[in-house]
């Protein structure tokens, strides 16, 4: 399948944003987005894990599952692989790079069960991307996720100080904001799709 890499980047970040258009990863999107700092940390951790797991799942899919005609095992295999992989990386990081380990902190094990990671791994193989396209797609999806998180965190930091009516304060106004943000991103869909 021949798809322009630039098109993949644009679509993954804007037109088909993983959070705002595909509604995957809503949990961290609402849970960790109350501060700019934490949302950025989460975003970077997601980019890291997403790229890594996309590559490994692609390799396993291409050389094991497709070869042996076991494509129906994709979901369960990918879950297993991602969980194991993240644990491995956590151990290695803790030993070799404590600074990075502390920066990614609690996000690493949290991400293991994040649906965006599994989602991207599955979307990759369903779209039939080759390895280069897989890497590009995973990184740009991660960037799209980070973008959504950072925008949301920026808005929520201001919402904290705004004079919001008492009925809407807290979760309610956050959900309304998320909805409007998602509507805004839907506008990109008219520009380009894959």
């Amino acid at each position: 399948m021949d798809v322009n890499l630039l098109a993949i980047i644009f679509v993954a970040i804007f037109a088909n944003n993983i959070v705002l258009s595909q509604f995957l990863g809503i949990c961290p999107y609402l849970g960790v987005s109350d501060r700019l700092e934490t949302s950025l940390g989460m975003g970077i951790a997601v980019i890291f894990v997403m790229t890594m797991s996309a590559v490994v799942t692609w390799v396993i899919d291409t050389f094991l599952l497709v070869q042996f005609d076991l494509v129906y095992l994709r979901t369960i295999t990918f879950i297993l692989v991602i969980a194991g992989l993240v644990q491995l990386v956590e151990m290695v990081l803790k030993k070799t790079n404590p600074t990075l380990f502390r920066a990614l902190g609690i996000y690493l094990p949290l991400i293991t069960t994040n649906c965006t990671i599994l989602g991207v791994a599955l979307l990759n193989v369903q779209a039939g991307y080759n390895i280069i396209q897989t890497i590009v797609y995973a990184i740009s999806t991660g960037v799209g996720f980070t973008l959504a998180m950072v925008i949301m965190a920026g808005i929520r930091e201001r919402l904290d100080l705004a004079d919001v009516s008492s009925y809407l304060r807290g979760a309610a106004v956050s959900l309304v904001t998320a909805g409007i943000l998602s509507l805004a991103f839907m506008g990109f869909k008219g520009m380009m799709t894959l």
């Binding site: 396993i60 644990q87 491995l88 151990m91 290695v92």
Partner: peptide, 20 residues
């Protein structure tokens, strides 16, 4: 397939847990 992958990752985890 699933058992093998599980065993592989389990073994890797056990090894890395000691090594690192």
């Amino acid at each position: 397939m699933i058992g093998g992958l599980g065993l592989l990752f389990g073994g890797l985890l056990a090894y890395f847990a000691q090594r690192f």
